[in-house]
């Protein structure tokens, strides 16, 4: 079984500044991590390899320093890492990102064998769109299962898979076919601690690095800013509310007096609430 898992390197904190002139994000100096949601997918991939055999290839698109995220993934036990890096990818929105990643996956299939499953995280903590997974699936014509809580069974020979997928009011049980793309829900598992062997292997491993051309991408109009239909026009701070909270005066009051006074203030401002509460509340 060949599993490809897409990971993204993201800044570790929300301490990101925006360039005052270009309105673009400056993340210099901010430490980076593997997008936390991707670790659930990575662990699932490693578990499936354990059960069915085969290989796990991690893929990221990013600047040269995204290599750090790939090395980390190797220490967890991934077999191979591919870094897609090229200046022409700069400024990609989700459509351009999923285009580039899907081409790289085609290249991975040609070079290392066709994947049975492509994994992605539910979403990232920076762009936070959850759009790249469905984008890759559509580009590659893969069946798509987002928000997967559990992979119930896989029959590699029969090419069958059954999954539990989160939906708004419950869980859907779906039966489908390989190959497919899966985005894993958070909290489905916990990333293993890589073995010492994995760590040593990771340190020795060569990371496959592809430029756009090496990944077989010819149409540069579909990459980066040029391939992105969305445009960020303005970045700004939210306006702050002028009025501050009215403080309940504390002087010489017991907690009971305070509670009564707060309730009175609440009902003065929201008279309808008292009525509603008298009927619904208090059970």
């Amino acid at each position: 079984m060949h599993i490809v898992i897409c990971i993204k390197q993201v800044p570790d904190s929300a301490q990101i500044r925006v360039h005052p002139v270009t309105n673009t994000i400056m993340r210099q100096g901010v430490p980076t991590i593997i997008n936390p949601y991707d670790l659930f997918a990575l662990e699932e991939a490693l578990k499936l390899r354990g059960a069915h055999g085969g290989e796990v290839t991690v893929l990221t698109m990013g600047p040269p320093m995204a290599e750090d995220a790939l090395r980390k993934a190797l220490t967890y036990g991934a077999d191979r890492a591919v870094l897609l890096t090229d200046r022409c990818f700069a400024g990609s929105d989700t459509l351009a990102t999923s285009f580039a990643l899907s081409r790289a996956i085609v290249r991975i299939a040609e070079t290392f064998g066709a994947p049975d499953i492509v994994f992605a995280g539910k979403q990232t903590i920076d762009g936070d769109t959850a759009q790249v997974g469905p984008g890759i699936a559509k580009r590659l014509g893969l069946l798509q299962f987002t928000y997967v809580a559990k992979i119930d069974s896989i029959d590699v020979d029969a090419r069958e898979i059954t999954v539990k997928r989160r939906s708004e009011g419950g869980t859907q049980m779906l039966k489908s076919r390989l190959p497919c793309l899966i985005t894993m829900l958070e909290g489905t598992n916990e990333i293993r601690r890589g073995s010492l062997d994995d760590a040593m292997r990771a340190a020795r491993s060569q990371i496959v690095k592809w430029s756009a051309a090496e990944a077989g991408i010819e149409d540069l109009n579909k990459c980066g800013l040029r391939g992105s239909p969305t445009v960020v026009k303005r970045v700004f701070a939210p306006t702050t509310k002028a009025e501050k909270a009215t403080q309940i005066d504390m002087t010489d009051k017991t907690q009971h007096d305070l509670a009564d006074e707060l309730i009175a203030a609440i009902f003065t401002r929201q008279p309808a609430l008292e009525h509603e509460l008298a009927f619904d509340g208090g059970q």
Binding site: G62, G91, D93, D126
Partner: peptide, 16 residues
């Protein structure tokens, strides 16, 4: 790559 990318100054003819 995205952030890093959106980070680059928008090339002429794009943003805005």
């Amino acid at each position: 790559m995205s952030n890093a990318n959106r980070e680059a100054p928008p090339s002429a003819g794009r943003a805005g």
